[in-house]
Design a protein around this nucleic acid. Structure first.
Lengths: 237, 237
DNA sequence: CAGTGGTCTAGACCACCGA
DNA sequence: CGGTGGTCTAGACCACTGG
């Protein structure tokens, strides 16, 4: 009856529970169900403590798979409106441009392994000596520079570097890391000299800086993007 | 020696611990410190179980106040680059415009208590009968419509409605809810008929829809914003 | 009211960091 | 190695939901 939640050595029990629950919800005996069995029932089924079970459930709630309702029960979040692919943002530039009738392209600016800047170390929660992978791209629409995308991610989350192709997110996904939640800022700022040259605008031009921090479970990485207040040329339809 | 963490009746103990820690970090005996005392030490100081203490610490980590480092300790996140006021986004329109040399203004479109749409109910994790407060504003720059901001928040997170002034975030903060993390989407879309009229553009004009979901701890609310691909008139400096 | 999730406790052991 | 945070347990009581 155990529903089998044996944690492989080195694996955390609650992660095994997360997997087990996800499995049962998607294709197992909880498929078709809208309401998860009560926690105390699940504890017996899975043979884990309630604390462990709740830790697992909490993860799935953050993921958007489950939904708590205090005195009512834990619900399975079917038909979620925001299933957004984790990669949707990084690929969306192309999509955005396409919908405006512009052709998107990009030029790689920087790619490699570095020591994090103090700011990065703080944002990533990484040690000052823990190396990070950095990828910077200039984004163009119909050949016109539109944005600069930068992504920095602690090395430990990445597979072999030569496997990192155009999409950093694919590489992350391959390792099982799917950034799904984020903290973001959007604010006016002044474009730096170097960035100004790249974008082909006068330095100190007003710009919108968009910084997005993605994190997953207990850790996170971040993506920063600098978008020029559009050099929109002509109305398009 | 207790450092006084008595939870008022009806208040959760770990919230009291959160407050106590925040106080000590900002102006108390942990000011100047970079490394928080060990958890087992804090447990004795505060006279709470380690579980409760960790729950409190976890909240502060989510808030960006503290930072975990496994075998090393729990650090105080001083000089955070992203201290963003929770209200920064909602007020940032004004700031953005100011930096571009434009004068920002706004017109209130909608304000009141409603039943949530099914989509909202799902996003907010609210019951279909739980009422929500909704606030919509048209944002203008030098009198020109630039964006539509909408915010929806479950009523239970708000104080008396007549206390909700121009800033929904201030009202939330007053109740101790500080949305600090978010999931966001940014995508190209077509502006709806009504919105098109409001913005004074032809319907089906290309637009960028920015949807931001803010959540706090175990629940969340959301803010949605629609920004017109700028009707930029003339270069400004 | 019975049943649910939410909080809290005390204690044990594991995994990691740094000197 | 000692000290730190991370996981896990078993059990208790509180707070809310719904019929």
């Amino acid at each position: 009856m155990h529903m089998m939640v044996e944690a492989m050595p080195g694996q955390k029990l609650y992660r095994a529970v997360v997997d087990a629950l996800r499995r049962e919800i998607e294709t197992g005996r909880f498929a078709e169900m809208q309401l998860l069995p009560a926690e105390r029932v699940l504890c017996e089924l899975l043979d884990v403590s309630r604390t462990t079970l709740r830790k697992a459930i909490a993860d799935l709630v953050v993921e958007g798979v489950l939904l708590h309702r205090h005195g009512a029960g834990t619900f399975i979040h079917r038909a979620r409106p925001h299933v957004d692919q984790p990669s949707s943002r990084l690929t969306s530039f192309t999509e955005d441009m396409r919908l405006r009738g512009l052709e998107a392209s990009s030029r790689e600016l920087e790619r490699g392994v570095f020591l994090p800047t103090p700011e990065e170390a703080m944002m990533l929660g990484a040690g000052p000596n823990e190396r990070v992978f950095r990828l910077g791209r200039l984004r163009l629409a119909d050949g016109l520079p539109m944005a600069i995308e930068r992504a920095t991610v602690p090395l430990r989350y990445l597979p072999a570097l030569d496997l990192v192709g155009a999409s950093l997110y694919e590489a992350l996904s391959a390792r099982g890391f799917k950034p799904t939640r984020g903290l973001q800022r959007l604010r006016a700022t002044l474009v730096s000299d170097v960035d100004a040259d790249l974008l082909g605008v006068a330095r100190d031009s007003p710009c919108v800086e968009f910084t997005k921090s993605l994190y997953r479970a207990d850790t996170y990485d971040f993506v920063s993007e600098l978008t020029l207040s559009p050099p929109v040329r002509k109305a398009r339809r």
